[in-house]
Nucleic acid binder design. Structure first.
Lengths: 177, 177
DNA sequence: AAAAATATGTCAACATAGCTGACATAAATT
DNA sequence: AATTTATGTCAGCTATGTTGACATATTTTT
């Protein structure tokens, strides 16, 4: 019987498994780990009527206060129309404020307010707790290895983005009022 | 001037950084790593008119052929209405077939076809390549540490799900025709 | 045997978060 | 003065999730 394009519709009963050069265990661990990693903040955000998109915006604005709209779009890799909606909500609810760029007045620098900083902290806490617990359950020296691994998973051409964030080690010297 | 709920709208200029017990570097590395990890298959799926949802269904059906709809819903943690759409497309395009459960004839066992297996392989390859490259860039003994870490990131009550997948090591004994 | 529970499917309506394309405005650059 | 750039906004589309209601076949319980 003619089956389309050389494949039959016969059910395959053998599980796909990492014989060849397939690393299925890391693939699926990554999937499950990320799913649960994002579930912590998702629950908190629900109470605010926010979603994961708001979280990402809030996170990076807190991580690099004063970043412009264009820079944020670059990090998030979404369109400005897509950003507009969530950003507007975060501004309307007083989590983020816009400041006209001091050099280039076309630019809008984005800053968290006290409220926005507090929410960012609240969202980061359960995630940090999960990470800490996971690190404790493995070797003590694992931390550097895991960071290196995760960084190596990122596209090389996009790694500069990460490096340009104020590193957890080297705190930048800005003084708030 | 009265500001709502004890917070001012004054812009905060200090970057959020991991002073307290905040593990920002792993938080953001995880975000970037997962983003790029999923971008490989996304590109392939586009050619088929499929999305990430199709990928997940196809993946787990290949990983555990014969799983029922209910089991799949359990793994994916979505509603049956949500699953219905993508599953229908995968069946219509001949990537997955349904077989009436042999014991309980209400159940629908899901199996990949040759075509569905092939696509699953094509999607897993670039992800495995990325993982392999990342593992090579770190210590050789890192593999076990990273797997343990990722597993520890998963909610304890959901870990059985992972363990019940045919592990890359112990291949189950099913014989295809 | 009848009733209840279960596994699945389906219809309709809705929400979120992404997208493209088009156009407007203000400010900077040429 | 003309052009480019940074941002904003309108309108409509898609993908993927949601809830609620209901239908059907089959199994389990009474």
């Amino acid at each position: 019987m003619a089956d389309r394009s050389s494949h039959s519709t016969k059910p395959i009963r053998t599980p796909l498994s990492g014989e060849d050069d397939l690393d299925l265990s890391v693939i699926e661990l990554f999937f499950f780990a990320y799913r649960d990693f994002t579930s912590d903040p998702d629950q908190i955000l629900e109470a605010y009527g926010f979603g994961r998109a708001h979280h990402r915006v809030l996170y990076f604005v807190n991580r690099k206060p004063g970043l412009t709209v264009a820079e944020l779009l670059d990090v998030l890799q979404i369109t400005k129309q897509s950003l507009a909606r969530v950003l507007k909500q975060l501004i309307d609810t007083g989590h983020i404020v816009q400041v006209q760029g001091p050099r280039d007045r076309r630019q809008r620098e984005l800053y968290p307010t006290g409220k926005g900083r507090q929410l960012a902290l609240d969202l980061a806490k359960p995630q940090s707790r999960r990470i800490r617990a996971a690190l404790e359950s493995v070797d003590g020296s694992a931390r550097a290895v895991i960071q290196d691994f995760l960084k190596a998973m990122v596209n090389p051409e996009l790694r500069p983005q990460i490096d340009h964030l104020p590193s957890a080690g080297a705190i930048s010297k800005g003084a708030d009022e």
